[in-house]
């Protein structure tokens, strides 16, 4: 019976790991890459910056992956999983970069634990140590909610990655160059659905407006200047979010016009004592998200997966 496909089971046995050609089978995602911190840059600052960008991607990916098997159509199910995978890939590289720049950011684990740094960072930090914007973490809503969230998130991230391609940090520049192609698709997908829902039916327009109303107040945080980002921008390593404001505004303005919608008038969501996501001060949603995401890993700090 296996005339054409007799080889399917060949090589299933044995401990040679080279047979598992998954493209993901490496312990250190930055193996072979120059990870020296550029001159004049504080490694702790670089690590904190990588955590900001990495956590944005990781938490957004976790929310997108919750859509798996729940989308309105198979094509959209596949698209949402694709975007979750892209962001997960970016998160892995950025968390690994953070750990390489400053190993002190990696939470301590029992002696001999095989958990790699990217996983120690993803699964063994508490919510206060996450540096993502609050937009990424709020609980999912309906399909309009994911479209609006992705549009705002990917518009800002694409503008950022485009500028990060020339970072003096080789790893950040490489992550950005790869990410630009991915996030351009995310923005395109979200923009097309945004216009479709706005101009589709009364119901879709109503839902889109509700999602816009619920999420717009989280938009400003994406381009809010943070002292750390400002200092790394001066050093030629990071991007100052303040410089993204105009281009992001222009893109969102175009999409809103195409959709026939006015720009929502919502003041940014306040922080607590002036602190927001980038400072480790989150919504109630994040610790719940982490409770799910981290539960298995934390139960097995000595585990191999």
């Amino acid at each position: 019976m296996n005339d054409d496909h007799g080889s399917i089971f060949d090589g299933l046995l044995g401990g040679d790991s080279s047979q598992w050609a998954f493209g993901t089978d490496f312990e250190d995602p930055l193996a072979g890459v120059d990870t020296t911190t550029p001159d004049g840059v504080d490694p702790a600052e670089l690590a904190a910056y990588c955590l900001m960008l990495g956590d944005d991607a990781l938490i957004m990916s976790q929310r997108l992956s919750e859509w798996c098997s729940r989308a309105p159509d198979l094509e959209e199910d596949i698209a949402l999983a694709n975007m979750a995978l892209d962001l997960l890939g970016q998160a892995r590289l950025l968390l690994a970069r953070a750990a390489a720049a400053d190993p002190r950011v990696v939470p301590g684990l029992p002696e001999g634990s095989p958990v790699p740094p990217e996983d120690a960072l993803a699964f063994f930090r508490d919510d206060r140590d996450f540096r993502n914007v609050r937009l990424a973490e709020v609980a999912n809503g309906d399909f309009a909610h994911v479209v609006v969230r992705l549009l705002m998130f990917s518009t800002a991230r694409l503008a950022l990655l485009e500028r990060l391609c020339v970072s003096r940090d080789h790893v950040l520049a490489a992550v950005a160059a790869k990410g630009v192609k991915e996030v351009a698709y995310h923005r395109d997908w979200a923009g097309r659905w945004f216009v479709t829902l706005a101009r589709g039916t009364e119901e879709s327009r109503r839902r889109l407006l509700a999602a816009l109303d619920a999420l717009w107040l989280l938009q400003a945080e994406l381009v809010a200047p943070h002292p750390l980002e400002h200092s790394l921008a001066l050093a030629g390593v990071g991007v100052d979010p303040a410089s993204l404001r105009d281009p992001v505004d222009a893109v969102l303005g175009q999409v809103l016009t195409a959709a026939g919608l006015d720009r929502p008038e919502r003041a940014p969501l306040a922080g607590v004592g002036g602190r927001t996501g980038r400072d480790g001060l989150h919504t109630e949603a994040l610790s719940l998200l982490l409770a799910e995401m981290q539960v298995v890993a934390r139960a097995h700090p000595m585990g191999r997966w």
Binding site: D25, S65, R92, A297
Partner: peptide
């Protein structure tokens, strides 16, 4: 949502996709 490593999360998500 509960995959215990990022690599396993990527593998599982890609598989279900």
């Amino acid at each position: 949502g509960r995959a215990p490593s990022l690599r396993r999360k990527a593998i599982l998500l890609a598989k279900v996709q």
